[in-house]
Nucleic acid binder design. Structure first.
Lengths: 270, 270
DNA sequence: TCGATCGATACCCTAAAGATATGGACATCG
DNA sequence: CGATGTCCATATCTTTAGGGTATCGATCGA
């Protein structure tokens, strides 16, 4: 388990020094631990030269499976600690404004079900899916296909068309609608939870994003429910050909909690 | 992880001495390890008196979640080792005679798909579901509802009515059909993979079972495809009101292997 | 009340895991 | 083309986590 943690760090960084710093240990013990892990498993996980490190195919497998195992262990601990608390609660992870306007009615409907427990809202721009995987949250409101739902169960709640938010006076603000092709060359945001490979300017919250848009530094394609949050100084226009975003309620695949099931039921479209 | 293994052993045995023996360590270090685990988690997992040990509600949670985490870790290692082998193979776990007569055609159809790899058959009376969970097998032929499919994905293949296998001359052999009520008072087998709580005489393979039936020591309710394996000296009769058994093909929920998907497709009813 | 059972405590000892110092390969730059 | 910096491996020492034996204290049954 410790060695798995070490391996995942190295596999993600592809750099022993950086990985060791992230793990708060020195580099030599890390090198040795990985070597021992490889010997014990009888498998070469990393090809190293003195210049670069990269994963073998077996290493790719262990990276994916190992992350799952680490999440399962972390979730086991957190759920146990939560179970020991006298007052049961549900933790719902969500992005500010990312609920598509559904949150109020979901919470009301859940609160009205018999045996409902208090619901804590954990606001987080990124990491929401990961919070459910590792037990920090019971449920999350996510977006499909923008979020990676691997390892989670989910129900669709609402599909939203996309709009682009522009600074006033932007060349595209003159149009009634915008197409994705119009946006080529524009700087777009990159949320912390984006799938690997997505490029763009790193952003961490909506206020910061709106600020940057009004400064003319970027434009952003967002679900139409963002309308209410577009400040004066920015405008929105429908994007005709963007992939629609579906708001989903997601929970751990191996949740057996009656509370979680009741919350999912309460969040079903009505 | 080590501590999780220790805790699961104690939680299953509800006895520190037996658990220590199972783990091949002495009892005092085990007591200490559990105590440390509880302190670090800040949760009481076990209520101990000098006479008996039992789980707290939080301990129940950790038992369930911990098993999952241990399985995930074991699977990570095994799948990595498998990925390092030069010749890819699929491992299919099944019970001798437990395929409902489908095995031959499934294997033929899979072998005919492009890119098919060799399939190893792992015969095992019990543990087949667990073999998939912890990575020893890629796929298993199981029975629903007799097997616990928690943590696995599965597709239904075939639903079979149940028959009872009796020694020749048994009082029920005189009837054309039998009902479950007729069987009250009879000794029934208990397979190693049975859900906890199922009682009966422990049995580990079909030959042994048939032997015991012919000796008049027990009778067994089995899927009708067992007909071909009933030896002279025993007879079978339909059980009118037994829950039908569905043969399913099961695989790990987080399998992304193209081979596994192809095999499942090849096993679909036709 | 005595003995058997079972978990906890006390104490020791080995080996795993971490740190520091340093070596060797290799790319980059003046 | 050699100096320099980067990066992983090796060598060596130290700490501590993890395991063993002996024994205690509580509790149940005979």
């Amino acid at each position: 388990m410790r060695e798995l943690r070490y391996f995942v760090a190295v596999a993600e960084e592809l750099h022993f020094g950086r990985a060791a710093r992230r793990l708060n240990i020195a580099q030599p013990p890390l090198s040795r631990a990985i070597r021992l892990l490889e010997r014990r498993m009888g498998v070469t996980l990393l090809e190293r030269t003195s210049r670069e490190v990269h994963l073998t195919p077996a290493g790719e497998v262990l990276l994916a499976e190992g992350r799952g195992a680490l999440d399962a262990a972390a979730a086991a601990v957190r759920r146990t600690q939560r179970a020991a608390e006298t007052t049961r609660r549900l933790v719902l992870a969500l992005k500010p404004g990312g609920d598509g306007g559904l949150l109020r009615s979901i919470l009301d409907r859940y609160a009205a079900t018999p045996g409902a427990v208090p619901v804590d809202l954990a606001f987080s721009a990124g990491e929401r899916a990961q919070m459910v995987r590792d037990g920090r949250a019971d449920l999350a409101l996510l977006h499909r296909p923008q979020n990676d739902l691997t390892g989670l169960d989910s129900d669709d709640l609402l599909t939203q068309d996309q709009v682009v938010v522009l600074p006033e006076g932007h060349r595209l603000a003159a149009q009634d609608t915008v197409s994705m092709a119009d946006l080529s060359g524009e700087t777009l945001p990159r949320w912390p939870e984006a799938r690997p490979g997505v490029t763009g300017y790193p952003i961490s919250d909506t206020n910061q994003l709106m600020q940057l848009i009004m400064l003319g530094r970027m434009v952003a394609v967002l679900p139409e429910s963002i309308r209410d949050r577009v400040p004066p100084g920015a405008v929105w226009r429908p994007v005709t050909d963007a992939v629609p975003a579906t708001v989903v309620i997601a929970w751990s695949r191996d949740s057996t909690s009656r509370q979680v099931a009741a919350f999912v039921a309460a969040s079903a479209p009505h």
